[in-house]
Write a protein that binds this DNA or RNA. Structure first.
Lengths: 333, 333
DNA sequence: TCTATTGATTGGAGCGCTCTAATAGTGTAA
DNA sequence: TTACACTATTAGAGCGCTCCAATCAATAGA
């Protein structure tokens, strides 16, 4: 199980190691005959260059690290898709990692990525402390996705959560709803604040009273939040529209509503956030706010490469526009 | 953005590079005073060793590569969880990759992983041709998860799909069902064959006639399969039990049934496969077959390390026992 | 004919680290 | 004191590669 090296290929092709190196980087200054011979030898030996030895020698890495906070969330799969396509196009190798939304594990994952001396890193919704982000930004170009931060050494790519929530509220108001509650994502989720602000601002703009229920981005939290609403309000005064923190939360809310004899959207309309694959299942068919996920990934990689290539030094904060996807959980009243 | 090297730490601590190396690998043969000094210097400089330079010099990698065929499927997230925990415990660094179930992209992802010269690789449900698996097995220890293969150079970890399907059939028969159909995963999915065989064998053991509908592991395919059943059978003769190829397929089937005025589980009972997070959502609450996913990850890593450590040379084929999780989509008739 | 010029090829140093063998330092027994 | 056995430390080679400068061959120009 000992893999061939450049030296082996060189010997077999009857040329020097340096020439093999040139062929592997398909330099134009190699004669067709030699190139042929080297390629043939490499093929026979099953040789492919050792990326990290290459990085070491050339002092320039082609490796980009990506930490995915939560592999269970398909949201990130789409972002990774965008990252991957852009990386491939630019000739970079992506290595992924995960920390499972547990600060200690994420810090370890970050350290691990950094120990590869990547050209840059992308952190998808990391839950590590700001200091760790700042430290990362000092070690190599760093881009944050779905996590805001004012750290000057890192760039960020986010969707505009204020706009997204506003989209949801406007949609419900347009359908004739007046009592609209927001199931808030909580303090642990860095994107929740913008969504809440957007909801509150939109409600006030419509001259309506905001109702914020503290919740979380899980389906059980969504159920719990609805039960809380049901004990707080008389049936007659119950909100007729719900702007959930995310899709999971929305699905939980729907379950709890139906369990209590309220039909969705007949009695209560529900809007999710994220347009996860869950939302598009015909069985659920959730009206939700869509983030341009693949585009976010692509943009994040482009932003990263600008720094890697040294084209830009000052931080940028990209805010992408979400859009509303109307399905079957909202209706007029 | 130039990171400190061992030499820098050595200079600052007033010792040699070799001594720093010993400290970094916490060798016992370093005096407490020097160790202290080195650690302090490393800390001040924010130094951490370059894993790949280390791998190059020591001729032994601590990197394990994992190719996840489909990041969108939370099934793999659980497997990765098990892999990750075991890797961490054994002091290995995991690097992930994905090919999105597209053969060409998966081959590229595999090549990319291999170019890091990892100590070993784990492939989660790869769709690359057998020849590529064989080639990988020659380059470094290789373990396949959720993909069977008779290639002699690679180990495999799978759940026993035959047992799983039997569990589903036995459950439905126990509830009084006699007409039970199977929505088959199709040829593209390597685990589908075992599930189908298990279904057929179990049906025959119960003296019942197997009904196999060709489908796929997606929710739209599930819908389509049910529509097909509805055109083939009179309502009175319609199967009262469905053993779906996986959870997505089951959810699609449920949608189509409900759309056609059939209640689940009132008129038709449905069993999924995989116990994805989807299945446990209260809103869906799917009876399904559970694979010990985290355990599969843990076992895969252990199997890999046996080869990495040279403790075993001949291939092993692990088959884990699935179990049935009864929820709300099945009932007696 | 000899020198330039161009293009193809190669030797060798060095990237950040580990590992072996050699060296320095310290105490201990004769 | 000298020899000996440790232990702590270090110099130096080398892992697989890139890159620079040097070499070589072939052709063109005078």
């Amino acid at each position: 199980m000992v893999r061939p090296t450049m030296e082996d290929v060189a010997a077999r092709a009857g040329v020097s190691r340096a020439l093999v190196s040139l062929v592997m980087r398909n330099s134009p200054k190699v004669s067709a005959i030699r190139r042929q011979a080297v390629l043939a030898a490499a093929d026979e030996l099953g040789y492919s260059p050792h990326v990290m030895a290459r990085a070491l020698a050339s002092r320039t890495s082609t490796v980009l690290g990506v930490m995915v906070s939560d592999l269970r969330n398909a949201f990130f799969a789409d972002v990774v898709e965008g990252l991957d396509a852009a990386a491939q196009a630019a000739g970079f190798d992506l290595i992924l990692n995960t920390g499972g939304r547990i600060p200690a594990r994420e810090s370890a994952a970050l350290r691990s990525l950094l120990s590869f001396r990547p050209a840059g890193i992308v952190l998808l919704s990391p839950v590590v402390p700001t200091a760790a982000l700042e430290a990362a930004g000092l070690q190599c170009p760093t881009v944050l996705v779905s996590r805001t931060s004012r750290v000057s050494g890192v760039d960020t790519v986010n969707d505009d959560g204020e706009v997204g929530s506003r989209l949801a509220v406007d949609h419900l108001v347009g359908l004739g709803h007046r009592r609209i509650a927001h199931l808030d994502g909580g303090l642990a989720v860095s994107t929740a604040a913008a969504r809440r602000r957007g909801y509150q601002a939109a409600m006030r703009d419509h001259g309506l009273e905001p109702i914020v229920v503290r919740s979380e981005h899980t389906d059980t939290a969504g159920e719990k939040a609805v039960r809380e609403l049901l004990t707080t309000y008389d049936r007659a005064d119950l909100p007729t529209g719900l702007v959930a923190g995310n899709d999971f939360n929305a699905v939980g809310a729907i379950s709890a509503l139906e369990e209590n004899g309220l039909r969705v959207p007949g009695d209560v309309s529900v809007v999710g956030y994220d347009n996860t694959s869950l939302a598009s299942l015909r069985h659920i068919s959730l009206t939700t706010v869509d983030q341009p996920r693949t585009e976010m990934g692509r943009l994040a990689l482009e932003t990263l490469l600008e720094r890697v290539r040294g084209e830009r030094a000052k931080p940028v904060r990209h805010l992408l526009q979400p859009s509303l996807v109307v399905r079957s959980t909202t209706t007029s009243r």
